[in-house]
């Protein structure tokens, strides 16, 4: 049976990227079996019927997989439950009478669009810089031609679980995107198919990442915030591949001149 919770919400409201924002306080009563976003839906229904502008927030699948949603809830990315995206967080994690502070991701690389919505295009730019294996449609060989050890495939899958929500950047005291970049890079760098472009990828993705985001100083906040619980081991692997890339890519440049 569901219980009703009386809550005070402090929600960050901001009209646009260049305007100043502030917290607005709302009072609401919701059932504890509602999801966090359903709670916001409900507040928005009330706001609209009271002739006010509803709170903007990004969301879509509400199954924790599309990566659209994500806000800071009481100073924690995606809120208090570990390994849980905002959409999968349910109100029974809160108590009657709680005050909940809701704020957008904040980073220079993620400018605010409106209220709780931020622009995460920088993530797409990082992928575009090299987060792929260049294989033209139709050019693929038989899928079982290259055996891949199960543990390598499993490790690649661990990295690939990233949903691109941006919680790692939001949680990082330096706004670094190393966990995202490392996960996307190492998924490919660990597989035999990804070897040909391994070192150009490592170089290009790191350089592109640093156009937008801060540096990793090994706090480990990102892996705590990650709804898919991706580990910072992948960051270490990225660091190693980046260093190697500096040598390997130069050697290849030399080979190109010779050849």
């Amino acid at each position: 049976m569901s219980n009703m919770l009386n809550l005070t919400l402090k929600v960050w409201r901001q009209d646009g990227p260049d305007t100043a924002g502030q917290f607005q306080t709302y009072k609401t009563t919701v059932a504890d079996d509602a999801s966090f976003l359903e709670m916001l839906d409900y507040v928005n229904e009330e706001l609209i019927e009271a002739d006010e502008i509803p709170i903007s927030f990004d969301h879509d699948c509400r199954e924790g997989i599309c990566g659209s949603c994500g806000v800071m809830i009481d100073g924690r990315a995606h809120g208090p439950q570990k390994g849980t995206a905002t959409c999968q967080l349910h109100m029974r994690q809160f108590s009657d009478g709680d005050t909940i502070e809701i704020e957008p991701w904040r980073a220079a690389g993620f400018p605010i669009i409106k209220d709780l919505v931020v622009n995460r295009a920088a993530f797409d730019r990082i992928i575009e810089s090299g987060g792929y294996i260049s294989v033209t449609t139709g050019a693929a060989e038989e899928a079982n031609a290259i055996p891949i050890p199960k543990h390598a495939a499993d490790a690649a899958m661990d990295a690939a679980a990233c949903i691109g929500c941006g919680a790692c950047v939001a949680a990082c005291p330096n706004s670094a995107a190393n966990l995202f970049t490392a996960a996307k890079m190492q998924q490919l760098n660990m597989l035999p198919q990804g070897q040909a472009e391994r070192y150009t990828r490592s170089n290009d993705m790191v350089e592109r990442m640093e156009q937008f985001f801060g540096s990793c100083t090994n706090y480990g906040e990102c892996q705590e915030a990650c709804p898919k619980e991706i580990t910072i081991d992948f960051i270490a692997m990225m660091n190693r591949d980046y260093v190697k890339s500096q040598l390997v890519n130069r050697r290849r440049l030399g080979e190109k001149k010779v050849g």
Partner: peptide
């Protein structure tokens, strides 16, 4: 690196941040 990181979040969080992993040593390096 410190300079880079200072420009990476020009507007700080307005609510109280709760750190989970970043211990005293890491934050005071």
């Amino acid at each position: 690196l410190t300079r880079m990181n200072q420009t990476s979040r020009p507007v700080k969080y307005q609510s109280q941040r709760r750190y989970l992993a970043a211990d005293f040593a890491a934050r005071t390096m």
